[in-house]
Write a protein that binds this DNA or RNA. Sequence first.
DNA 1: GTTTATGCAAATTCTTTGCAATACT
DNA 2: AGTATTGCAAAGAATTTGCATAAAC
Lengths: 139, 139
Amino acid sequence: MDIEHHLEQRGIKLTAMRLLVYQELEQAHRPLSLRELEDRMPTAERSTIFRTLTLLLQHHLIHAIEDGSGSLRYEVCDGDDECTLEDQHIHFYCERCHRTYCFYDKKIPQVSLPEGFQMSSINYMVKGLCPACDKGVMG
Amino acid sequence: MDIEHHLEQRGIKLTAMRLLVYQELEQAHRPLSLRELEDRMPTAERSTIFRTLTLLLQHHLIHAIEDGSGSLRYEVCDGDDECTLEDQHIHFYCERCHRTYCFYDKKIPQVSLPEGFQMSSINYMVKGLCPACDKGVMG
DNA sequence: GTTTATGCAAATTCTTTGCAATACT
DNA sequence: AGTATTGCAAAGAATTTGCATAAAC
């Protein structure tokens, strides 16, 4: 995907910082926390990354999920265009190793909302034990 | 529901504090944050409430949900018995008024997990605008 | 030269723990 | 007395902001 064009299309100036943050998220293949991004980009400042994330969120180029780890995690949106509700996949959070998995092929089942409620996003987060940790527990 | 018996049945000593916390959650009819509980119980100490919540969580008398407000919210489990995966309902978080709604009659649609993943809980959180706020936006 | 982005430092918010004091049995 | 609970105070962790510097146009 042409990240540069993708961003500028929406009127976001492409800075080195923004490209870097976006690429890190894209390459991670799983949602990263602010802390994890900091660790992966020693040259970048926490607040800069934070503001970049905020900006990317506003423009729906990434989305944030809560997995219960105590910090937000960010991931690039699926597909070539902005996030849509339908393309969101479910996540799995391992309570033992604290890793968040994306099940890209498992889309979030939709539900109807009561009259008057306007949906903008959905989080479907399953928690439990991942295969490796489940095995570990068994001995 | 007989809270006292409900608790002691599980070997939890029923203290005034614990009864109070449980009742507050029960009467709120929506998930409350630690901060909100503090505000509702001026006589109680933050750390005491926190430890009480931790204890109730461990014994599956309440559960915690993340709505993206930045703080965890707690609510009593549905039904007369411990939480089961099937009885969990979906939640709605209003991004404008920061209120979390329970849709008790909307159960979480189940999905199958890849081989080896063990599920212990699910969070299904819808975000957007509630009727009041949606109206407000329109003018 | 004006506007925008970044870095640093620190404030704020939320969660969690150590420890002494209190209450319960 | 001995164990469990509570209150206080503060540590830790994560998010967010103010302001000065630096970069971009």
